[in-house]
């Protein structure tokens, strides 16, 4: 298991208490899991993503990520419509372990972009992990 000092964080992203990250990509948002999350889960063997077009509220479960250890639910960090899912993960779910910040899970068109401001900054997320 990685020590806090070994974990990778990316400045400028927003984070959640469920160990997801969010970044803006034009007028949409991309969502992935953090290095801490992938390290805790172990090898990812399957990512179950929602249908494109699904509309969900902040906090709703939008899919699952399966590792060798367990099945983890994924929760939407902001309300909106799923506009894309990362199809690269269908054939190579291990990409999430290799580079969790490059390999996003879903892209959302937010219904209330201001919700993004309510998420954790990188500093706040680091504090959360320190416990």
């Amino acid at each position: 298991m990685k020590e806090l000092s070994e974990l990778i964080f990316v400045d400028g992203l927003r984070y959640t208490e469920d160990h997801e990250w969010v970044t803006t990509n034009g007028d949409t948002l991309r969502v992935g899991i953090t290095d801490y999350a992938q390290d805790q889960m172990g090898d990812v063997v399957f990512v179950e993503a929602p249908e494109v077009g699904t509309e969900l509220n902040k906090g709703d479960e939008f899919g699952t990520i399966e590792s060798v250890k367990a099945v983890s639910e994924l929760f939407l960090p902001v309300s909106g419509k799923i506009v894309a899912v990362n199809e690269d993960l269908d054939d190579a779910p291990e990409l999430v372990n290799e580079d969790p910040y490059k390999n996003w899970l879903v892209e959302i068109k937010p219904s209330d972009p201001s919700e993004l401001e309510g998420l954790l900054t990188v500093e706040a997320y680091k504090e959360l992990l320190k416990g």
Partner: peptide, 10 residues
């Protein structure tokens, strides 16, 4: 140990 750095799949 559950797994080492190489990961369970490897």
């Amino acid at each position: 140990p559950l797994w080492y750095k190489s990961g369970t799949k490897a």
